[in-house]
Write a protein that binds this DNA or RNA. Structure first.
Lengths: 141, 141
DNA sequence: TATTGTTATACTCTATAACTATA
DNA sequence: TATAGTTATAGAGTATAACAATA
Protein backbone atom coordinates (compact mmCIF):
# COMPACT_ATOMS: atom_id res chain seq x y z
CA UNK A 1 0.00 0.00 0.00
CA UNK A 2 2.57 2.55 1.04
CA UNK A 3 6.27 2.51 0.40
CA UNK A 4 8.56 2.99 3.34
CA UNK A 5 10.21 6.18 2.33
CA UNK A 6 12.35 6.52 5.42
CA UNK A 7 15.66 5.14 6.49
CA UNK A 8 15.13 2.60 9.22
CA UNK A 9 17.45 1.52 11.95
CA UNK A 10 17.72 -2.18 12.60
CA UNK A 11 15.69 -1.73 15.78
CA UNK A 12 12.94 0.13 13.95
CA UNK A 13 12.91 -2.46 11.21
CA UNK A 14 12.44 -5.17 13.81
CA UNK A 15 9.57 -3.29 15.42
CA UNK A 16 7.81 -2.88 12.08
CA UNK A 17 8.52 -6.48 11.21
CA UNK A 18 7.09 -7.54 14.52
CA UNK A 19 3.85 -5.69 13.85
CA UNK A 20 3.63 -7.27 10.43
CA UNK A 21 4.10 -10.74 11.91
CA UNK A 22 1.51 -10.01 14.59
CA UNK A 23 -1.02 -9.09 11.95
CA UNK A 24 -0.23 -12.15 9.89
CA UNK A 25 -0.67 -14.22 13.01
CA UNK A 26 -3.90 -12.49 14.00
CA UNK A 27 -5.34 -12.94 10.52
CA UNK A 28 -4.44 -16.62 10.46
CA UNK A 29 -5.95 -17.09 13.90
CA UNK A 30 -9.10 -15.36 12.83
CA UNK A 31 -9.41 -17.51 9.73
CA UNK A 32 -9.48 -20.48 12.09
CA UNK A 33 -11.90 -18.77 14.48
CA UNK A 34 -9.32 -18.29 17.18
CA UNK A 35 -8.09 -15.21 18.94
CA UNK A 36 -4.42 -14.42 18.58
CA UNK A 37 -3.77 -15.42 22.18
CA UNK A 38 -5.57 -18.71 21.79
CA UNK A 39 -3.65 -19.51 18.60
CA UNK A 40 -0.39 -18.68 20.34
CA UNK A 41 -1.25 -20.97 23.23
CA UNK A 42 -2.09 -23.84 20.88
CA UNK A 43 1.10 -23.31 18.88
CA UNK A 44 3.26 -23.38 21.99
CA UNK A 45 1.58 -26.61 23.06
CA UNK A 46 2.60 -28.33 19.82
CA UNK A 47 6.10 -28.35 21.28
CA UNK A 48 4.80 -30.60 24.05
CA UNK A 49 2.42 -30.47 26.99
CA UNK A 50 3.42 -28.51 30.07
CA UNK A 51 2.13 -27.26 33.37
CA UNK A 52 0.52 -23.89 33.92
CA UNK A 53 3.63 -22.37 35.46
CA UNK A 54 5.88 -23.18 32.52
CA UNK A 55 3.20 -22.13 30.08
CA UNK A 56 2.90 -18.80 31.84
CA UNK A 57 6.60 -18.21 31.48
CA UNK A 58 6.57 -19.12 27.80
CA UNK A 59 3.68 -16.77 27.09
CA UNK A 60 4.71 -14.08 29.59
CA UNK A 61 1.37 -14.28 31.37
CA UNK A 62 0.40 -14.22 35.02
CA UNK A 63 -0.94 -17.55 36.16
CA UNK A 64 -4.41 -16.18 36.71
CA UNK A 65 -4.51 -14.77 33.18
CA UNK A 66 -3.49 -18.16 31.90
CA UNK A 67 -6.22 -19.89 33.89
CA UNK A 68 -8.83 -17.90 32.01
CA UNK A 69 -7.20 -18.42 28.64
CA UNK A 70 -6.97 -22.16 29.19
CA UNK A 71 -10.55 -22.22 30.46
CA UNK A 72 -11.79 -20.70 27.23
CA UNK A 73 -9.89 -23.02 24.89
CA UNK A 74 -10.77 -26.00 27.05
CA UNK A 75 -14.44 -25.03 26.86
CA UNK A 76 -14.04 -25.17 23.09
CA UNK A 77 -12.54 -28.64 23.27
CA UNK A 78 -9.10 -27.65 22.00
CA UNK A 79 -7.05 -28.53 25.09
CA UNK A 80 -7.56 -30.65 28.17
CA UNK A 81 -6.21 -30.45 31.69
CA UNK A 82 -4.58 -33.72 32.69
CA UNK A 83 -3.51 -34.62 36.20
CA UNK A 84 0.19 -34.73 36.93
CA UNK A 85 0.95 -38.04 38.63
CA UNK A 86 4.07 -36.77 40.32
CA UNK A 87 2.56 -33.63 41.85
CA UNK A 88 -1.07 -33.55 42.76
CA UNK A 89 -1.14 -29.75 42.84
CA UNK A 90 -0.11 -29.50 39.21
CA UNK A 91 -1.76 -30.24 35.91
CA UNK A 92 -0.50 -30.69 32.40
CA UNK A 93 -2.19 -28.94 29.51
CA UNK A 94 -2.56 -31.13 26.45
CA UNK A 95 -3.83 -30.48 22.97
CA UNK A 96 -6.85 -32.47 21.91
CA UNK A 97 -6.84 -33.89 18.40
CA UNK A 98 -8.94 -31.01 17.20
CA UNK A 99 -6.69 -28.54 18.99
CA UNK A 100 -3.62 -30.02 17.40
CA UNK A 101 -5.15 -29.90 13.93
CA UNK A 102 -6.07 -26.26 14.44
CA UNK A 103 -2.62 -25.40 15.78
CA UNK A 104 -0.87 -27.01 12.84
CA UNK A 105 -3.19 -25.40 10.31
CA UNK A 106 -2.63 -22.02 11.90
CA UNK A 107 1.12 -22.53 12.01
CA UNK A 108 1.21 -23.50 8.36
CA UNK A 109 -0.87 -20.53 7.30
CA UNK A 110 1.47 -18.17 9.12
CA UNK A 111 4.56 -19.85 7.74
CA UNK A 112 3.27 -19.81 4.18
CA UNK A 113 2.32 -16.17 4.34
CA UNK A 114 5.63 -15.13 5.88
CA UNK A 115 7.71 -17.13 3.45
CA UNK A 116 5.83 -15.51 0.63
CA UNK A 117 6.60 -12.11 2.12
CA UNK A 118 10.26 -12.84 2.67
CA UNK A 119 10.57 -13.97 -0.94
CA UNK A 120 13.51 -15.82 -2.34
CA UNK A 121 16.55 -15.76 -0.10
CA UNK A 122 19.60 -17.78 -0.84
CA UNK A 123 20.37 -20.59 1.63
CA UNK A 124 23.41 -18.75 2.94
CA UNK A 125 21.33 -15.65 3.41
CA UNK A 126 18.61 -17.57 5.26
CA UNK A 127 21.09 -19.26 7.54
CA UNK A 128 22.73 -15.97 8.34
CA UNK A 129 19.43 -14.30 9.09
CA UNK A 130 18.28 -17.11 11.33
CA UNK A 131 21.57 -17.06 13.18
CA UNK A 132 21.15 -13.40 14.02
CA UNK A 133 17.68 -14.05 15.38
CA UNK A 134 18.79 -17.09 17.36
CA UNK A 135 21.56 -15.07 18.95
CA UNK A 136 18.99 -12.46 19.99
CA UNK A 137 16.65 -15.08 21.38
CA UNK A 138 19.44 -16.63 23.39
CA UNK A 139 20.51 -13.34 24.94
CA UNK A 140 16.99 -12.05 25.39
CA UNK A 141 16.16 -14.21 28.38
CA UNK B 1 17.35 -18.81 29.85
CA UNK B 2 17.03 -21.61 27.34
CA UNK B 3 19.07 -22.18 24.24
CA UNK B 4 17.21 -22.74 21.02
CA UNK B 5 18.33 -26.22 20.26
CA UNK B 6 16.24 -26.58 17.13
CA UNK B 7 16.74 -25.65 13.53
CA UNK B 8 14.47 -22.78 12.68
CA UNK B 9 13.04 -21.80 9.36
CA UNK B 10 13.14 -18.13 8.47
CA UNK B 11 9.40 -17.92 9.11
CA UNK B 12 9.71 -19.50 12.54
CA UNK B 13 12.63 -17.26 13.38
CA UNK B 14 10.51 -14.24 12.50
CA UNK B 15 7.65 -15.45 14.67
CA UNK B 16 9.97 -15.95 17.64
CA UNK B 17 11.60 -12.60 16.97
CA UNK B 18 8.20 -11.00 16.86
CA UNK B 19 7.30 -12.36 20.27
CA UNK B 20 10.57 -11.12 21.66
CA UNK B 21 9.96 -7.64 20.26
CA UNK B 22 6.42 -7.66 21.62
CA UNK B 23 7.71 -8.42 25.08
CA UNK B 24 10.37 -5.76 24.85
CA UNK B 25 7.68 -3.35 23.76
CA UNK B 26 5.28 -4.42 26.50
CA UNK B 27 7.97 -4.09 29.16
CA UNK B 28 8.95 -0.62 27.96
CA UNK B 29 5.30 0.43 27.89
CA UNK B 30 4.80 -0.87 31.37
CA UNK B 31 7.84 1.01 32.66
CA UNK B 32 6.12 4.15 31.44
CA UNK B 33 2.76 3.11 32.87
CA UNK B 34 1.21 2.47 29.50
CA UNK B 35 -0.38 -0.59 28.01
CA UNK B 36 1.24 -1.99 24.91
CA UNK B 37 -1.64 -0.78 22.75
CA UNK B 38 -1.48 2.71 24.19
CA UNK B 39 2.27 2.89 23.63
CA UNK B 40 1.83 1.71 20.07
CA UNK B 41 -0.78 4.37 19.44
CA UNK B 42 1.46 7.10 20.81
CA UNK B 43 4.44 5.88 18.78
CA UNK B 44 2.45 5.88 15.55
CA UNK B 45 1.31 9.42 16.27
CA UNK B 46 4.91 10.64 16.47
CA UNK B 47 4.95 10.20 12.70
CA UNK B 48 2.26 12.89 12.48
CA UNK B 49 -1.35 13.45 13.48
CA UNK B 50 -4.07 11.64 11.58
CA UNK B 51 -7.77 10.94 11.56
CA UNK B 52 -9.41 7.94 13.17
CA UNK B 53 -9.85 6.08 9.90
CA UNK B 54 -6.17 6.23 8.96
CA UNK B 55 -5.14 5.42 12.50
CA UNK B 56 -7.37 2.38 12.45
CA UNK B 57 -5.70 1.14 9.28
CA UNK B 58 -2.22 1.70 10.70
CA UNK B 59 -3.05 -0.20 13.87
CA UNK B 60 -5.34 -2.76 12.22
CA UNK B 61 -8.20 -1.86 14.52
CA UNK B 62 -11.91 -1.41 13.94
CA UNK B 63 -12.96 2.17 14.30
CA UNK B 64 -15.04 1.43 17.38
CA UNK B 65 -12.07 -0.25 19.07
CA UNK B 66 -9.99 2.78 18.31
CA UNK B 67 -12.58 5.11 19.77
CA UNK B 68 -12.18 3.40 23.12
CA UNK B 69 -8.40 3.34 22.95
CA UNK B 70 -8.23 7.02 22.08
CA UNK B 71 -10.75 7.79 24.83
CA UNK B 72 -8.52 6.20 27.42
CA UNK B 73 -5.32 7.95 26.38
CA UNK B 74 -7.18 11.22 25.96
CA UNK B 75 -8.55 10.87 29.48
CA UNK B 76 -4.94 10.59 30.63
CA UNK B 77 -3.98 13.76 28.78
CA UNK B 78 -1.67 12.10 26.28
CA UNK B 79 -3.55 12.91 23.09
CA UNK B 80 -6.24 15.38 22.07
CA UNK B 81 -8.95 15.28 19.43
CA UNK B 82 -8.72 18.32 17.19
CA UNK B 83 -11.35 19.38 14.71
CA UNK B 84 -10.57 18.92 11.03
CA UNK B 85 -11.33 22.22 9.27
CA UNK B 86 -11.84 20.60 5.90
CA UNK B 87 -14.28 17.90 7.01
CA UNK B 88 -16.56 18.50 9.91
CA UNK B 89 -17.24 14.80 10.39
CA UNK B 90 -13.58 14.03 10.97
CA UNK B 91 -11.10 14.74 13.73
CA UNK B 92 -7.36 14.65 13.94
CA UNK B 93 -5.65 12.93 16.84
CA UNK B 94 -2.67 14.84 18.15
CA UNK B 95 -0.09 14.09 20.79
CA UNK B 96 0.03 16.44 23.73
CA UNK B 97 3.45 17.51 24.98
CA UNK B 98 3.30 14.91 27.68
CA UNK B 99 2.15 12.29 25.21
CA UNK B 100 5.02 13.07 22.90
CA UNK B 101 7.58 12.89 25.69
CA UNK B 102 6.21 9.50 26.73
CA UNK B 103 6.17 8.23 23.17
CA UNK B 104 9.78 9.23 22.58
CA UNK B 105 10.93 7.79 25.88
CA UNK B 106 9.19 4.54 25.12
CA UNK B 107 10.60 4.42 21.61
CA UNK B 108 14.10 5.00 22.90
CA UNK B 109 13.80 2.32 25.54
CA UNK B 110 12.69 -0.21 22.96
CA UNK B 111 15.39 0.81 20.51
CA UNK B 112 18.12 0.62 23.10
CA UNK B 113 17.04 -2.78 24.31
CA UNK B 114 16.75 -4.19 20.80
CA UNK B 115 20.07 -2.81 19.68
CA UNK B 116 21.67 -4.40 22.69
CA UNK B 117 20.06 -7.71 21.77
CA UNK B 118 21.09 -7.51 18.13
CA UNK B 119 24.64 -6.86 19.14
CA UNK B 120 27.32 -5.64 16.83
CA UNK B 121 26.46 -5.94 13.19
CA UNK B 122 28.62 -4.49 10.47
CA UNK B 123 27.11 -1.61 8.50
CA UNK B 124 26.76 -3.76 5.38
CA UNK B 125 25.05 -6.44 7.43
CA UNK B 126 22.64 -3.92 8.95
CA UNK B 127 21.77 -2.43 5.60
CA UNK B 128 21.14 -5.83 4.15
CA UNK B 129 18.94 -6.87 7.03
CA UNK B 130 16.92 -3.69 6.90
CA UNK B 131 16.48 -4.06 3.15
CA UNK B 132 14.96 -7.51 3.60
CA UNK B 133 12.51 -6.17 6.15
CA UNK B 134 11.61 -3.16 4.04
CA UNK B 135 10.91 -5.40 1.10
CA UNK B 136 8.57 -7.45 3.28
CA UNK B 137 6.82 -4.37 4.59
CA UNK B 138 6.30 -3.09 1.08
CA UNK B 139 4.78 -6.33 -0.16
CA UNK B 140 2.83 -7.00 3.03
CA UNK B 141 -0.06 -4.63 2.31
C1' DT C 1 -25.73 7.28 -0.82
C1' DA C 2 -21.26 6.96 1.18
C1' DT C 3 -18.13 8.20 4.79
C1' DT C 4 -16.46 9.67 9.63
C1' DG C 5 -16.82 8.76 13.91
C1' DT C 6 -19.49 7.36 18.29
C1' DT C 7 -22.59 4.39 21.18
C1' DA C 8 -24.42 0.01 22.86
C1' DT C 9 -23.37 -4.50 23.84
C1' DA C 10 -20.94 -8.62 24.65
C1' DC C 11 -16.89 -10.95 24.78
C1' DT C 12 -11.84 -11.80 25.51
C1' DC C 13 -7.61 -10.60 27.77
C1' DT C 14 -4.95 -9.13 31.70
C1' DA C 15 -3.21 -8.11 36.40
C1' DT C 16 -3.55 -7.97 41.60
C1' DA C 17 -4.90 -9.99 45.70
C1' DA C 18 -6.77 -13.59 48.33
C1' DC C 19 -7.54 -18.32 48.50
C1' DT C 20 -7.11 -23.87 48.47
C1' DA C 21 -4.48 -27.80 48.25
C1' DT C 22 -0.26 -30.09 48.10
C1' DA C 23 4.92 -30.24 48.77
C1' DT D 1 6.90 -22.21 54.46
C1' DA D 2 6.83 -22.47 49.60
C1' DT D 3 4.72 -23.78 45.30
C1' DA D 4 0.79 -24.97 41.74
C1' DG D 5 -3.19 -23.48 40.42
C1' DT D 6 -7.96 -21.19 40.98
C1' DT D 7 -11.31 -17.53 42.23
C1' DA D 8 -12.84 -12.76 42.74
C1' DT D 9 -12.64 -8.42 41.00
C1' DA D 10 -11.74 -4.62 38.08
C1' DG D 11 -10.27 -2.62 34.13
C1' DA D 12 -8.41 -2.64 29.24
C1' DG D 13 -8.90 -4.29 24.53
C1' DT D 14 -11.73 -5.87 20.69
C1' DA D 15 -15.52 -6.71 17.25
C1' DT D 16 -20.39 -6.32 15.46
C1' DA D 17 -24.32 -3.71 14.79
C1' DA D 18 -26.90 0.38 14.98
C1' DC D 19 -26.63 5.22 14.98
C1' DA D 20 -25.71 10.56 14.06
C1' DA D 21 -23.76 14.00 11.35
C1' DT D 22 -21.59 15.47 7.33
C1' DA D 23 -20.03 14.85 2.41
Amino acid sequence: MTTIGEDLTVAEAFVRLSHLVQHVFADAARDHELTQQQAQLLCVLTRGSTGMTDLGKLLHLEKSSLTGLVDRVERRGLVARARDDRDRRACRIELTDRGERLALACHEAVTARLEKLVGELGPAESTHLVSIVVRMLDSGS
